[in-house]
Write a protein that binds this DNA or RNA. Structure first.
Lengths: 148, 148
DNA sequence: GCCAATTAATTCGAATTCGAGATAATTTAT
DNA sequence: ATAAATTATCTCGAATTCGAATTAATTGGC
């Protein structure tokens, strides 16, 4: 009975399913992260510094995909919580680096493994083969959409 | 070299890829919708009324997955734009129905086909078989995550 | 060396979303 | 029949995000 559907309708359906899946997953991940006192954006920024080291503030926005004004806002919050510090760049005085603090590192040491575990739980709906397939297909989709 | 990865890491990767794909797709779809003077939530609500008929305000929130206070906000906006009207339910005076207006219907007559076409373009990164696979896999993922 | 264009970060105001609490109507249980 | 619990909607304040405009610093072309 799904036979009569044309490709446009299939795409629309895929859009709906993708949106729903993302919403469900995002909600679970968010619950996990908020337990640790961070919101998803704060977590993403802190994780970037934790796993990839110091970053110019501008790069943070690029990698986490938020507007520059939002980056300022999130970095402010994390700085107030003492999870990171701003350090002016001596070579280029336009640039400010963000560095994770001891306290931030300690926090991530504690919550990152738990987070990874939680993600593992959330994605138990698919087996390894399926996850690999999904990654492949979603990458194709994502790249294509980005290029448009 | 991807061989050494364990399932937890694979899930984390899938999460990242899913997030990125959704971000790219969402951005494109949003561009399309904003061209027509609506934001994604307004579009979703109007589309619901357009394709599924009148809805109690509460149902709108359930189907579009927004909080009740957000529903009030969006319905207010659409009502101000004359795309829908509130109609008190005579059988249960707690309930208010939202009905799409002539003007709203005319708008959707014009933009819905274009929207579907735009989605078709955005998802050209995958062929029919791949879309069917994605739908299947994403449904599994989404349902599982929702049940947690 | 100097002006124009570019780049980094910030401030500001607007839009959107949420959750908690309020209000009103209905239903359930006693 | 009434009190208590539930349901639908709305109000309000807070959080988050964005885009446009601002400030400051650097770079490139002449």
């Amino acid at each position: 009975m799904d036979k009569e559907i044309n490709e446009e309708e299939l795409s629309l359906k895929l859009f709906v399913v993708l949106t729903r899946a993302m919403q469900s997953v995002k909600k679970r991940v968010e619950e996990d992260i908020r337990k640790h006192g961070l919101n998803p954006t704060e977590f993403a920024v802190l994780e970037l510094l934790y796993n990839k080291g110091d970053q110019p503030i501008q790069k943070i926005g690029d990698k986490v995909l938020i507007a520059s004004s939002s980056t300022t806002y999130v970095v402010d919050k994390l700085e107030k919580k003492n999870y990171l510090r701003r350090r002016p760049c001596p070579k280029d005085r336009r640039i400010t680096h963000a560095t994770i603090t001891e306290e931030g590192t300690a926090l991530m040491d504690e919550i990152f493994p738990k987070h990874q575990e939680a993600i593992g739980e959330i994605f138990k709906g698919a087996d390894i083969k399926e996850k690999e397939q999904l990654i492949l297909l979603l990458k194709k989709l994502g790249y294509y959409a980005q290029e448009l």
